[in-house]
Design a protein around this nucleic acid. Sequence first.
DNA 1: CTCCCGATAT
DNA 2: ATATCAGGAG
Length: 220
Amino acid sequence: MNQKVRHILDTIASMFPDAHCELHHSNPFELTIAVLLSAQCTDETVNKVTASLFQKYKCPEDYLAVPLEELQQDIRRIGLYRNKANNIQKLCQLLLDKHGGEIPRSHEQLTELPGVGRKTANVVVSNAFGVPAIAVDTHVERVAKRLGLAGPDDSVLEVEKKLMKKVPRDEWTLTHHRLIFFGRYHCKAQNPQCEVCPLLDICREGKRRMKTGGSRKSKP
DNA sequence: CTCCCGATAT
DNA sequence: ATATCAGGAG
C-alpha cells in the first residue's frame, strides 16, 4: 500500500481511535430509519428526534398504522420531512411485502428501498451486518478531496472507488468512521483546523489555505 | 440539474 | 444573512 495513504490512516487512527456510528439505534431497522433521516441534517438533530420516534414506532406495522401527516409532524424538525415520511411508509410496506418485515442484508436489495441510496446502503451493511464498506457522505467526500485521496471534481462514486482501491478491505469500515470524525471535528467545512493539523505537510488544500489568507476573520 | 427543508453555526 | 448538515429521487 501507498505510504502516504498509510500515514493518513495511522494519523487519523491516533486522532480518533474510537470513531463509531453516532446515530443512535438498537437494530438494523432503526439504523436504516436513522440513516434515511440523516440526509442533509446533523446526527445530533436526528438523535433528538429518534429518541422519541423509536419509542412510538418499533416495527414497520407501527409506521403504517398512522396517517402520513402524523408521521410528517413526528419528524418535522429533521427537514425534508415530506419526502422522508413518505419514503419511510413506502419502505415499511415494501419490507412487509417482500422481505418478511426485516431489513434485507444485501446492498442491492437495500438500494431498492425508497429513500435508500448507495451511501445509506453502505452504512447499513457495514454497521449492521459487518460487511466492509466505505460510505461517502459529505465529510468523507470533502476530506478525501482535500487530502488528495480523490480528485477535486470526482463524483461520490469515483471517490468511493478510489478509497476502496487505496485502503485495505479489512480497514474500510473503521477508516470510514475515522474519516467522518476527522471531517466533522477537525477538517471541518467552515473552519478547518489547519493550524494544528498533523497532516498539514501532506495536504495541498491545507497549505493553500495557510498561504492565501489562513484564518478568514483575523484582525487589522 | 433541481427540489426537498428545519436546525444550527458562523 | 448565509453556509452546512452521515442524500435521494425525478
